[in-house]
């Protein structure tokens, strides 16, 4: 379903992603783990047509996203690390806007919006502005939206960041459920080892722009002779801290927070 060969992304001198190759099968839940700055988000951006790779090839359901861009885009859904909802519109309007952008016929759209909003327990709040939602509700809405156009692949970039254990638990239940019912391939990144251990069929561990290990949770533990995924992760990536410098988006966010209370 996802095929990546020798993918590389360089920013000036810095190599964010260095010659990675992997393959995700149809219907699989595949987790990308790695410390901050390992290149996970850069990889997702390249897979989802937001960033042009320096070299290497990508195929999503057989389509090269840089050649058959619209075909590829129609086939995946994405939940970004940062929220990407329109907070000035209602939950329903956000779903509808997505449905129209993804060419879902009117009748299917109406049915599926109701189905997904009910599933993610947002149907009663459908007429409320997204700006009044809690972090957990926004995440649920984003994931519901990601499933709206029945994508073949769903990308989840740290979807549970900042959520309480209840929301995380429920969220993964829904994702696993839809992965089975609609046989959606799921590609996720997370910092929570227990989540990856619980939901992912296979795990790739990334560090300094390269994939250091790939396999099932059991395989990774066996390879490092450790008894938990966390211990395996630390054995593979070391214990030193990673510092990231703030980029312009972070600065802008700080500025916006000064002016508006959201």
């Amino acid at each position: 379903m996802i095929q990546v060969k020798n993918l590389t992304k360089k920013f000036d001198q810095f190599t964010a992603v260095n010659d990675i190759s992997f393959q995700v099968d149809s219907g699989e839940i595949f987790a990308f783990l790695g410390p901050n700055g390992a290149g996970k988000t850069t990889t997702i951006k390249m897979l989802t047509t937001l960033l042009r790779p320096t070299s290497g090839s990508i195929h999503l359901d057989g389509f090269d996203p840089w050649v058959k861009q619209r075909d590829a885009r129609q086939r995946f859904g994405i939940v970004f690390q940062d929220p990407s909802l329109d907070s000035e519109q209602t939950a329903y309007e956000n779903m509808e806007l997505h449905g129209i952008l993804y060419h879902i016929p009117h009748r299917v759209r109406v049915e599926r919006i109701e189905l997904l909003l009910r599933l993610f327990e947002l149907w009663d709040r459908r007429k409320d502005y997204v700006k009044t939602f809690s972090g957990g509700m926004k995440r649920r809405l984003e994931i519901a939206r990601g499933f709206l156009h029945t994508p073949k692949i769903l990308f989840l970039d740290e979807p549970t960041l900042g959520l309480d254990p209840q929301s995380r638990n429920q969220l993964w239940n829904h994702v696993k459920d839809l992965n089975q019912k609609e046989s959606t391939t799921v590609f996720l990144t997370t910092h929570y080892m227990d989540e990856a251990d619980r939901v992912a069929h296979r795990i790739a561990i990334m560090d300094h722009g390269t994939i250091v290990a790939i396999g099932t949770s059991a395989e990774l533990k066996a390879r490092t002779s450790t008894d938990s995924l966390e211990a395996a992760f630390l054995a593979l990536t070391g214990t030193s801290l990673r510092d990231e410098s703030a980029n312009s988006t972070d600065n802008l966010r700080r500025f916006a927070q000064m002016w508006q209370k959201r």
């Binding site: 989802t48 047509t49 619209r70 129609q74 970004f80 940062d82 990407s84 909802l85 329109d86």
Partner: peptide, 11 residues
């Protein structure tokens, strides 16, 4: 606020 990305990946 991120909404831009939703429109950037739309088909």
């Amino acid at each position: 606020f991120g909404f831009l990305k939703e429109t950037l990946v739309a088909p």
